[in-house]
Amino acid sequence: MSAPLLDVQGLRVRFGNTDVLHGVDFQVHAGERVALVGESGAGKSMVAFAILGLLSAPGRISGGQVVFMGDDLVVMPPKALHRLRGRRIAMVFQDPMMTLNPVLSIGTQLMETLQHPPPGLAKVDSTEARQRAIDALAQVQIPDPQSRLRQYPHELSGGMRQRVVIAMALLQGPQLIIADEPTTALDVTIQADIMDMLVGLCDSRGMALLLITHDLAVVAESTQRALVMYAGRVIESGDTAQLTQAPAHPYTDALLRALPQMAAPGARLANIGGTMPDPGALPSGCAFHPRCPHSMADCRQRMPDWYPSPTGAAACHLLDPLRADNGTMP
């Protein structure tokens, strides 16, 4: 297999004195769509911002590598990293109400990425920038793109704004798009439209997608591989189709059971008791053990290793083939 487009190895992020990512490993290959799944607070967005070097103030990368197209972004000079942003790796943020600048027109915000690059990169003249902006808006299925250029963000609906944000991400032909909960802030009726469009665009342009979400239903429909995160660690990874059918890790299983689509009509939805632990006060051993229905003595004492599972691999003591009482999950 060829070298991955993005190879994250042992990525650790620290906020002040608290570790929030404890060594995250995963790869994204060219043109591949990978999901990063987990509850709020699992550290999913942290991974995205760490890749782009855009962690906000007290946060910093305290270890690991982010190798993108052969270069480690963690040790890359800030100016060189900034030249990759938008050009090689683009990002779509969660809330389109907040991502667009309220005082600049859509056209200005689209064209400026071409017209005002960092020093050392070629500028595009305004006629061509305008044409490319119109093309990008047309690609995200915005009607009448020419007249949209003059509009301001507050004149557009949430779905339209997210389409504009995606157009901005596409504009410079990146190899990888990181989408951080791109449909969470939107109306349910348009979530599927936006996801379908994003997947279609990635396919037709051969772009890789790192989709960050808590919604396993979205994952199942739009990605090939999925990684499940809990408390700053990846705890299961594998093929999306299999992982969403037969998860190996109790946490993934619990996430799936919490989906409304999985419940029988009229039945109560299963929920996961308790909440994600505070990053400053993680439980001993496996961080999920206080909420896990299969918790054993081992789980409290030591961190589980990674074991192969039918769907890929997972970090859970239940999968240890050497366990005496090794039972499969009920």
Binding site: S56, H82, N101, P102, Q172
Partner: peptide
């Protein structure tokens, strides 16, 4: 400078001067 749209402007890979003077300063 702490808003999402300024962070997004960084993620777009704009010239830093543009981010400070146009995106941040106008607001």
């Amino acid at each position: 400078l702490d808003t999402d749209f300024v962070r997004f402007a960084w993620a777009k890979g704009l010239r830093p001067g543009r981010i400070w003077w146009v995106h941040a300063f106008r607001n």
